[in-house]
């Protein structure tokens, strides 16, 4: 379970508060969606949770199954089971996708004190997972995200997710820049990873992704905190009416 309590975060370099008392609970096995207008702090939240530099937590807490995330290095958070699917996955020239995946998987296993996967074990696993996500072998050989189309990049994120088997997945606007078919493929990938225990936090602007990844709970975020929480119908409401009414309600 991911639990965020009254989290206040400012930019490290300037005196600008971005998260202003964010509280959120995602119990295990559930899929939550976060929607909100631009600049409401959604991406900041995902970065702060995964440990990116440049932010300062001034108060509040964030835990994953009771473990204090904010005390950990980014790689320790990953090993503890947190995964962020990036809005803009980074390109790493010269590093084969397969190499990257294997290094990541084994780094996490080492951090958890588990035995590393042998080359053969890894190869078997990656082939199975890639196949189930309809990712062809060619994409595994290419350098990480270099020359990938928007859809390929997002599917690659889902492949990483499938390989790393996290407890808690945050998807940061995974649907942005995708056409309908690509979005469906990505959603199928995510759905295939729903197993009743794994939790998801889906950040999105649009209801349409939630047609494919059905959330249990929808949160509306604005100005650095959750202003409303409800069922899937809340997303439809936003789709029809925009955020104005909701924002007016709080104000």
């Amino acid at each position: 379970m991911l639990e965020i309590k009254d989290l206040h975060v400012k930019l490290a370099d300037e005196d600008k508060e971005i998260l202003k008392g964010l509280s959120l609970r995602v119990p295990s096995g559930e899929v939550h969606a976060i929607m909100g207008p631009n600049g409401s702090g959604k991406s900041t939240m995902s970065y702060v949770l995964s440990g990116k530099d440049g932010y300062e937590v001034t108060s509040g807490s964030a835990t994953l199954d009771g473990a204090d995330l904010l005390e950990m290095e980014p790689e320790e958070r990953a090993a503890a089971g947190l995964f962020l699917a990036f809005q803009y996955p980074v390109e790493i020239p010269g590093v084969g996708n397969m190499t990257f995946l294997r290094t990541a998987v084994n780094s996490q296993r080492k951090l958890r004190g588990e035995e590393e996967l042998s080359a053969a074990e890894f190869l078997k696993l990656v082939r199975t997972r890639a196949k189930s996500l309809k990712i062809d072998a060619d994409m595994l050989k290419r350098p990480v995200n270099v020359g990938f189309s928007g859809g390929e990049k997002k599917r690659n994120e889902i492949l990483q997710m499938a390989m790393l088997e996290p407890k808690m997945c945050i998807l940061d606007e995974t649907d942005s820049g995708l056409d309908v078919d690509a979005m469906k493929l990505v959603a199928e990938g995510v759905n295939a990873l729903r197993d009743g225990k794994r939790s998801f936090l889906v950040i999105t602007h649009y209801q349409r992704l939630l047609d494919h990844i059905k959330p249990d709970v929808v949160h509306i975020m604005a100005d650095g905190r959750i202003i409303k929480t409800g069922g899937p119908e809340l997303a439809l409401e936003v789709e029809h009416n925009g955020y104005a009414d909701l924002l007016a309600e709080v104000a």
Partner: peptide, 15 residues
């Protein structure tokens, strides 16, 4: 070497 690249790798479990 870009901080974004480093962070991306670290968020996947590498130190």
């Amino acid at each position: 070497v870009d901080d974004e690249q480093l962070f991306y790798c670290r968020s996947r479990g590498m130190n």
